[in-house]
Simulated scan of single mutants.
Amino acid sequence: MMKELKEILQTILKEKKGYLTFLTGAGISAESGLPTYRSIDGILIKGTKYHRPEEFGTYRYFSQNQEEVWQYNLFWKNMIEEAKPNAGHFAITEIEKLLGERFKLITQNVDGLHQRSGTRKVYEIHGSKQKVRCSKGCSEPFDFPENIQAKEYTEDLTPDDIDDLKCKKCGNWLRPHTLWFDESYNEKYYHFDTAYHIADNTDILFVVGTSGSTALPINIVETVKIRAKWIVLINPDNDTHFDYILRGSKTLCSIQESSSVALPQLKRIIEEILK
């Protein structure tokens, strides 16, 4: 499969036209120790202490239970801080350097590991747990306040935590800068229009570590498929929704490997072609 992929890339890189786009999901960060959402030990299976995230991870729930939601998010903050970028993240960073303006990265991940590995241009279509914004919309997203510490899940918020998690402009609660289940994609926060523009101009799309369970990633893949451009699935599991909707496609390559194995190989192939 890598030999076939090299031949495809030789043609695409020679033409010097469209983007080489990466669409990444929770699978690439699983190798850094962060649970995926839909695996057997994932967030959607285990849920929270009392609820499944389809209920818990909503603006409606947050508006009634701000302290509980923040307690959970500070626990996630703890996991993210302990995680480190892996070989897959670093390979993407090196590919960005090789491809320059033709490189695009769209990620469903909210953990910031792509940025921590050195990737410069990242389109986070589900937001970022590294940022917060006013829950009533009076502020643009800004970096997580440094004085608010990560917590274990059983730790309660302190009065100082609660004060620091209130908007300094209007006094309402801050919220995580992430897309909740009862919210819609938009350009302002989640690069909705930009993602479609990238898909419309992509010559080869690498779909890495994502099963195809949310709307915008599915539409990105469908857009590239309709344009009869190449799609490369990189995932140890070959029974995802993307495998299903792309079955029989003449412009599909499937690499049944982990991202930490496949992406360094891909980086080396691109290096060889561009020498």
Rank of each mutant, 00 (worst) to 15 (best):
A150W: 12
R120Q: 14
H126V: 03
L179Y: 02
K3F: 00
I218V: 15
S184R: 02
T107P: 05
M1W: 07
I218N: 11
Q64Y: 06
Y72S: 00
N219F: 11
E272G: 00
L179G: 01
C167E: 04
H114V: 08
H114F: 08
K225M: 10
L9P: 07
K104Q: 08
T119W: 06
S63W: 01
Q149M: 13
N219R: 14
K121H: 11
L157D: 00
L13E: 04
T36K: 09
G25Y: 07
N235W: 07
K121E: 14
N86D: 04
L233E: 07
K166P: 00
M2A: 05
E183L: 01
L252M: 12
K49R: 14
D143P: 04
S117N: 05
N109P: 00
Y185P: 01
E187I: 10
I204M: 04
G118N: 07
Q256H: 11
Q265P: 02
I80P: 05
A228H: 14
D161M: 09
E96W: 06
N172H: 15
I80S: 07
Y185K: 00
K250H: 14
V69L: 06
Q10G: 13
Q66T: 11
G127T: 07
D193H: 10
E155S: 12
I269H: 09
P141W: 04
T158I: 09
T210W: 04
N235R: 11
V208Q: 03
N186W: 04
T194H: 05
L20V: 15
H51V: 02
P236E: 05
R175C: 04
I245V: 15
A228M: 11
K267V: 00
G18F: 00
A150D: 01
I40Y: 13
E4F: 12
S249W: 14
T36F: 01
D182H: 02
L113K: 09
N78D: 12
L274E: 12
A91W: 03
P141E: 06
N147W: 07
G248T: 05
N172T: 13
Y37H: 10
Q10R: 15
K188I: 08
A83C: 08
E257V: 10
A215L: 15
L99P: 03
S260E: 09
H89M: 12
K6S: 12
T11G: 15
E67H: 10
S139V: 08
G100A: 09
T93L: 03
H177T: 01
D156A: 12
A262L: 08
W180R: 01
E55M: 08
R52G: 08
R247S: 13
S32K: 08
Y196M: 15
E94I: 00
Y59A: 00
I270V: 12
D161F: 10
V132L: 09
W70Q: 09
T36V: 10
I270M: 11
L233S: 03
H241E: 14
L113Y: 10
L20P: 01
V261Y: 00
I269V: 14
D41K: 14
T58A: 02
G127M: 10
S254W: 04
S39V: 06
